[in-house]
Design a binder for these strands. Structure first.
Lengths: 109, 109
DNA sequence: CGGCATCCTTTATGATACTG
DNA sequence: CAGTATCATAAAGGATGCCG
């Protein structure tokens, strides 16, 4: 016979949770994803939209998000160089839920 | 005239985002919230459901979540002592979105 | 039982200078 | 322009012992 808790709420999956947290946790990561949304932005545009972020951290976060498959990086062989970032399909699929986190934040007002 | 981006996706609110992240980020915080769900659990039960968490971290996370207003702590003046934790109304309101984060994690499989 | 205090290790974040 | 390298600080997490 199942317990009351099993019926009402199956035990959360720690692995799924950690994958979601890897995508959004950190001082800038979720904000970068939401900011990007459906647009394509260049490295410099992102740095202007994230005032106060250091070069090292921005480059590191972008690299990590690309590695996670959340966003895509496209470099053009031009001079001066141009690099564009946009969400991957995976990132776009996650977007609705991630945007809802702002409503969760709203609960604290 | 609004820009294309303004129409499609208003700039995310960093303050709301940070409030949501404060609630869920960290190695255990989101898992504690989802695990609690609609139940009431004692301190020792929580520690058994979070294998590997240290006393310091568990006590600190519970205290932080109570301070954030996400959960409630109820201590009984018995011997031996008994302390119960459950989600506050705020925590229960956030629960549906937080559970959806597992589906976001599912995207990485 | 349900913590807190202390000390320690690991990650995360940041400032800055430099380069293909 | 779009980063990397190096150095430094801060925050998170953990091990362990003690206490009301």
């Amino acid at each position: 016979m199942p317990t009351n808790r099993d019926e009402q709420a199956p035990k959360p999956d720690l692995r799924l949770i950690n994958q979601a947290l890897a995508m959004i946790c950190g001082k800038w990561r979720l904000y970068i994803i939401l900011l990007l949304g459906e647009q394509t932005l260049r490295y410099t545009q992102l740095s202007e939209l994230l005032p106060g972020i250091s070069e090292k951290v921005l480059a590191g976060e972008l690299k990590a998000l690309v590695a996670l498959g959340v966003m895509k990086r496209k470099a053009y062989a031009e001079m001066p160089p141009r690099v564009e970032y946009k969400l991957s399909k995976k990132g776009r699929l996650a977007l609705p839920v991630l945007n809802q986190l702002q409503e969760v934040g709203q609960l604290f007002n």
